[in-house]
């Protein structure tokens, strides 16, 4: 539990990522002033000019580990943080840049950079939990604002955050959405995907893209023939799992099954 006598110090760290999850914090708008009152935002390069110093009660970590330098830096962040929470698909599953895990990154570097020998990069993009111990993982690409606030308030109150790991289907049904898969014939990853977005895409007649990674007990093998029957060929079924959460084990294994 946070020490309620002193204002808890919050830090926001960025690793390999697009900044979208950090921006969710700024996107809190109305709640942001309340947040600024409840915690001391001690380090947040996206919003302040503060310097890295001292220790932090709560560190929010965005991004994945893709360089030797970052692999060292995350250890320093862990040492300075009483609680470390990873936010978003990059930090929890390696992110879209995790696609390098299926390819040869040296080949990419040779194509993209004039002097690839200047590029110090790792062969893989890996989640933070592969490098240091993580106290809580918040899923999503990007994370949901209400869930980020829930994680921070739960930390302040010393309770477990309510971020259910069940399927997106449950949220669809709570919301009253008509199932796009059953009623429209639209392929959807909802049954195997972790809730958190509030079933956003199905509410707008789109199938779920799996932005929150695998649900707690995903059965991708059983969903597969249904996706095929709705017109997705093997290439599509491989690609649909190789997006923001390509490195999440359940999605990686399922996409590997469809390798040519």
């Amino acid at each position: 539990m946070a020490n309620r006598r002193a204002t808890p110090r919050l830090a926001v760290w960025k690793f390999a990522s697009c900044d979208g999850c950090q921006l969710t914090l700024l996107d809190c708008e109305d709640e942001f002033l309340g947040l600024a009152g409840a915690v001391e935002i001690a380090y947040f390069p996206e919003a302040t000019r503060g310097q890295l110093r001292g220790r932090y009660d709560l560190s929010l970590v965005e991004g994945s580990i893709t360089t030797p330098h970052d692999a060292e830096r995350i250890r320093e962040v862990r040492r300075r943080s009483a609680h470390l929470v990873t936010i978003g698909a990059c930090a929890t599953a390696g992110g879209i840049q995790g696609l390098r895990n299926f390819a040869d990154v040296r080949e990419y570097a040779a194509v993209v950079y004039a002097r690839p020998d200047y590029i110090a990069t790792l062969a893989t993009s890996t989640p933070i939990a592969d490098h240091v111990s993580v106290d809580f993982e918040l899923r999503g690409c990007p994370i949901a604002k209400h869930q980020l606030l829930e994680v921070i308030t739960a930390f302040l109150a010393g309770r477990r955050p309510v971020t259910p790991a069940h399927s997106v289907c449950l949220d669809c049904k709570l919301r009253g959405n008509v199932c796009v898969m059953v009623a429209h014939g639209t392929p959807c990853l909802g049954p195997v995907t972790h809730a958190g977005c509030g079933a956003l895409c199905p509410a707008y007649h789109r199938g779920c893209y799996g932005c929150y990674g695998p649900q707690e007990t995903p059965n991708t093998v059983s969903l597969d023939p249904a996706l095929e029957a709705l017109g997705m060929d093997a290439r599509d079924r491989r690609r649909v799992y190789r997006t923001f959460n390509a490195g999440a084990p359940a999605f990686r294994e399922e996409s590997d099954r469809h390798d040519p």
Binding site: T153, A157, R159, V162, C169, L174, V192, Q215, N219
Partner: peptide
């Protein structure tokens, strides 16, 4: 089984709930 829970959500007799606090 996908363990997605759809059957229980659409079932007109399934009545189970859980409680959650928000602060």
């Amino acid at each position: 089984c996908l363990t997605c829970g759809n059957c229980t959500m659409v079932c007109p007799t399934c009545f189970c709930t859980s409680e959650a606090d928000s602060s």
